[in-house]
């Protein structure tokens, strides 16, 4: 009988403890989740530089594109002798909403933050053709903050210069 009582008391005690502790643990878990979520990146700022690369002239890399020198000096771009900044557009994207970039060329780029694994931002990029009738690109990608992804578009003419249009896409954490 005492054994039964002892066991029963233990079970009673255990259920009492569980009753008291469970909400505490649950609240703790919720708080931990919330704080983790708060720490996660919810917003990113993205800059897109539309660059016209031309095979003509000897302009090279102008001061406004100096920050891209390492990339534009790669063999990939060796065929081009002149680079021109056509426009720069900045916008912020969140986990809920994409940022749309409309370019002079008519192309439209949409960037949406998908997440952040601590080392890299995960984004979705979508680019439409100049007439908007078709998608040229739909991609999910990861990249280090401020890293450059270059999207090569079509032929373009601006300010009397013609060449191929490149979009240098960079995103960084913004909260």
């Amino acid at each position: 009988m005492s054994y039964w009582n002892n066991n029963r008391n233990k079970r009673l005690l255990a259920s009492l403890l569980a009753g008291v502790l469970a909400p505490t643990v649950a609240v703790g878990a919720v708080m931990a989740t919330e704080s983790t979520a708060e720490a996660a990146t919810k917003k990113a700022r993205c800059d897109v530089h539309a660059v016209l690369a031309s095979k003509a002239g000897e302009v090279g890399i102008p001061p406004t594109l100096e920050f891209l020198r390492q990339q534009l000096s790669q063999d990939e771009f060796a065929v081009y002798k002149s680079f021109y900044l056509v426009e720069k557009i900045s916008a912020k994207t969140t986990l809920e909403k994409a940022a749309d970039f409309k370019f002079k060329s008519g192309n439209q780029l949409s960037l949406k933050l998908l997440g952040d694994d601590g080392a890299k931002l995960k984004l979705h990029a979508k680019m439409t053709s100049r007439d908007g009738a078709s998608d040229l690109l739909n991609a999910d990608y990861s990249i280090v903050p401020k890293g450059v992804l270059v999207i090569a578009g079509g032929e373009f003419e601006d300010g009397g210069n013609s060449g191929r249009l490149f979009f240098a896409v960079q995103c960084d954490r913004a909260g």
Partner: peptide, 19 residues
């Protein structure tokens, strides 16, 4: 402009290059 890191480490997960 943002200061570009030495390596961007781009990883493409899904890609559809249009029609």
């Amino acid at each position: 402009p943002m200061e570009v890191p030495d390596a961007s480490g781009v990883e493409i997960h899904n890609i559809d290059l249009g029609g």
